[in-house]
Design a protein around this nucleic acid. Structure first.
Lengths: 156, 156
DNA sequence: GCTGAAAGACTCGAGCG
DNA sequence: CGCTCGAGTCTTTCAGC
């Protein structure tokens, strides 16, 4: 398999490593080693190669927001006025921990965000007090996720 | 800090553990142990408690899609016809590896997805050949992310 | 909820083919 | 270059308090 950046080649062993570690970042490397039939050190070296190539950009434990009381996910399209400084708006959005993603987008919105709130009251408060009050924001359009059925990374 | 599920309490040490491991899932537990002043075994036990409470729902290595040639992220709102079986549509979307998220939503769309494509040609192909051909799908509206400035988890 | 100890696993350097 | 081997460190489990 040929890749983009500096044409790294990943083989079946690399794929097995990636599949194991994208499912569970704490999978014992020796367990993978036994499955593919090479030493743990070799797996470790391949991992460093994959990290160096930027194919792996890190690892993280996944927090379940529901346990923290965050049960409402919403997507919000933001309209900016012509004079708005988009960078300033992004900077203001970064300060809101509830904002998980923020995108410059084509289409009717200038900025499109994904956020988590505790409930609809909290969402309304975020919109009216924290987002619509940002200088340059004209208005917003929200889309509430009632249920998320797919959440995954790109397949390797 | 009181939490939702069975009112688990997490203290400052738990927060430090979580902050370390949500940043890098392979952070040595003994390093965290030295920072907070208790034994590695104690950290480990707290981790098991956090996992048991479902506050931690797993861990994963993060794949950088750009290195795989996936450089276009898009959000697609999907209109379904009245007779459409939403579950069947979701099932069809699950088969497309490019679809990373899928939500039932309020508002004009029935289903809202986030997807990754290699480029605009690939995106157009996905829309016209793989998504708009799903039985029940009336039409779609796309929003292309030109740049993603925020990508994070909820703050602990 | 913590510690200490032991077995197994991780990580890194050195060196082989 | 990709592999193995081995030494030092880290993880994980368990008994005990």
């Amino acid at each position: 398999m040929k890749l983009n950046q500096k044409t790294i080649t990943i083989d079946g062993i690399d794929k097995k490593i990636l599949r194991a570690l994208t499912t569970d970042a704490r999978t014992p490397i020796l367990e993978i080693a036994r499955n593919v039939g090479i030493s743990g050190a070799a797996i470790h070296q391949r991992l460093r190669k994959l990290e160096k190539s930027k194919l792996i950009s890190g690892s993280q434990f996944i927090i379940n927001p529901k346990v923290l009381g965050y049960s409402t996910m919403a997507f919000v399209g933001i309209y900016l006025d012509k004079a708005a400084n988009t960078d300033d708006v992004i900077r203001a959005l970064k300060k809101l921990p509830e904002v998980l993603e923020c995108h410059y987008t084509t289409g009717v919105y200038s900025v499109f965000i994904k956020l988590l709130s505790k409930d609809n009251v909290h969402l309304m408060h975020l919109l009216s007090h924290n987002i619509q009050t940002i200088s340059g924001v004209l208005r917003t359009e929200s889309l509430i996720s009632l249920e998320q059925q797919i959440n995954r990374q790109i397949k390797i």
